[in-house]
């Protein structure tokens, strides 16, 4: 069981790392939002799953309740994080920012 928890946490860290590298390495505004929005949400899902599982190990009603409460964090992040990304992209589009294109290949 502990192995499973460690696996979840490690995969979650992997996603967060990928998101962080993606924000730095991606070209352009919209492509940078892509790792920031998606990988962070995935990373938080996996890490919180790991924490909730770890909390469940001496199984009782209280620990189950606490795990459900921990999962509520994921619920709210799943609601708010894509919406925030969406609104940032929306603001960028309305302000007239063009998306990034590879000038070398085109020209």
């Amino acid at each position: 069981m502990n192995l499973l928890v460690v696996l979840f946490l490690l995969v979650g860290v992997f996603f967060f790392l990928g998101g962080a590298i993606g924000i730095i390495r991606m070209p352009g505004f919209y492509t940078r939002l892509h790792p920031a929005g998606i990988l962070d949400t995935m990373g938080i899902l996996l890490m919180v799953t790991g924490i909730a599982l770890y909390n469940l190990i001496p199984f009782s009603f209280d620990s189950l309740l606490l795990s459900i409460k921990i999962f509520l964090i994921v619920f709210f992040v799943f609601l708010s994080s894509p919406t925030a990304t969406h609104s940032i992209v929306d603001a960028g589009m309305r302000a007239g920012l063009r998306h990034w294109t590879n000038k070398k290949r085109r020209g």
Partner: peptide, 18 residues
Amino acid sequence: WVPSDLIIKTVCRILVPF
């Protein structure tokens, strides 16, 4: 002011009571 779209309105309506 630019009108915010349906997604933002709906999600904020869900989140505000919480």
